[in-house]
Simulated scan of single mutants.
Amino acid sequence: MSINISFSDGEFKIATNTKGSPKRQKGNSFLEFPKDYTIIDLETTGFDARYDEIIEIGCIKYRNNKEVAKFQTLIQPAPSYEYDDNDNKTAMYYVDDFISELTGITNEMLVSAPRFESISNDLQAFLKDELLMGHNVNFDINFLYDYFLKYNEYIFRNNFVDTLRLSRRVLPELPNYKLKTIADYYDITNTYHRALADCQTTYQIFTQLSQKAHAENIDLTLSPKHKKNDLRKITPDSTTFDSDNIFYNKNCVFTGKLEKFERKVAAQLATNIGAHCENGVTKKTNFLIIGSFQDVVSVKDNKSSKIKKAEKLILEGQDLQIISEHTFYDYISEELEKQQEKND
């Protein structure tokens, strides 16, 4: 599933990490080109498995790289409500205009769709013991993990292969690894943001990556060389700032993996409201924004060297705050909303 960032209807559409939630006991991630697997893709009402809901599930099962079975269904999520002056509530919609425009899935389509609990046993049976595959598949697995645990009391531990990770190894020259970017690279034309269509696109990408990796004898165990971005060189898109916002004229540093977009994009957002971004923690740092350290072997106890240095500086009295990625987004959305109101 491709991930997009937007700001509409007073809401900053962006993913958050799951810090503070119980750690999911998920399966293992493999870097390989299997012959037997099931590709999965979900469409959802948002990006956070803690708060948002599934609206479509698509799965295609392959044996010896040949399609053998499909599972697809729309899912009716909990409706949103409108309240009148007497606190009487009326169900208004399942998905907002942004999601409908992105996916093509409308409220009318979801009215008669089944709830997850009514299809969960069939889906569990379809996915049982399957090696899963998907593009940025952790996103989809997190939603399914939470749903299976909630409705079936079932711990979803399937192992998985992420074509996004494979793409980074096989195509290190690409500017980003969105599903559409890689599809365009291989001249793959398809409908995006519908579950089965994205599964089919993922299969075509996987096939191309496999052929290239085998033809060029690419070692998947070798990490691709990434050119590090110098965040200090990022300049704001505007020269007008609200000096009351908490990031104005403050030095910001990022650590960990940001869940749904590149660190450079996050730094640009901060710079656009008057912050200065740095590459490392120093005695001038005011904010350290923390992403995820899941699957980062070199980081123990979820504390990178930047976090440890920041904690030391705080104890020494430095004006420095450590905030989560989620909190960072909240602050950014408030500032974007203010800017939008000024421009209207």
Rank of each mutant, 00 (worst) to 15 (best):
P236D: 01
E43W: 03
I55K: 01
A195I: 03
L127Q: 03
L149C: 04
Q25H: 03
N142Y: 09
L336F: 12
Y203R: 01
T240M: 14
E32K: 11
T327L: 09
K309V: 04
L196P: 07
E316H: 02
S298Y: 09
K338D: 03
N136D: 11
L220A: 03
S2N: 11
D129T: 10
N249K: 15
L110D: 11
Q204N: 02
H135Q: 13
E101H: 00
G20T: 12
T103W: 06
G10L: 09
L288G: 14
C277T: 01
N249E: 15
I105G: 08
F160I: 05
N138W: 11
K19H: 09
Y94I: 01
N152V: 05
I314K: 13
R263G: 06
T221Y: 07
L196A: 11
N107P: 01
D301Q: 06
E56R: 01
N343A: 12
R165L: 05
D48Y: 07
D48L: 15
L144H: 13
K227W: 01
I14S: 14
I57V: 13
F148E: 12
D9M: 05
F30A: 15
N64W: 02
L102Y: 04
E108F: 07
D52R: 10
I246S: 02
Y62M: 14
T191F: 13
Y329F: 11
P34M: 08
R165I: 02
I323A: 03
E316S: 02
M1N: 08
M133Y: 15
Q76W: 07
A310W: 09
D184I: 13
S29W: 02
Y186I: 01
V111E: 15
S118P: 02
S120L: 04
T221E: 07
N65W: 07
E67M: 13
F7N: 08
M92C: 01
L127Y: 09
K257H: 04
K233V: 07
I5A: 12
N64Q: 06
I205R: 06
A213G: 06
K283G: 05
N88Q: 10
D162V: 04
N217F: 00
Q72C: 14
H214F: 06
F148P: 12
G27E: 05
Y248Q: 09
V170A: 10
L166Q: 10
T201K: 02
I105Q: 11
R169K: 15
D36S: 06
I322Q: 12
D48P: 08
N343F: 11
L31Q: 09
V296Q: 06
S210M: 14
R168N: 08
G317C: 13
L102S: 11
Y154W: 10
N28D: 05
R24V: 00
F116L: 04
T271W: 14
G280C: 08
S112K: 15
K312Q: 14
I246G: 03
L74S: 06
I323Q: 00
G27H: 13
S8C: 09
G104S: 04
Y185L: 00
N190D: 10
N190E: 00
I273E: 11
K260M: 08
G134R: 07
K233D: 14
D122S: 14
S100I: 06
D344N: 10
K35V: 11
G20F: 03
C277F: 09
S298N: 10
T163M: 13
T255K: 04
F7I: 15
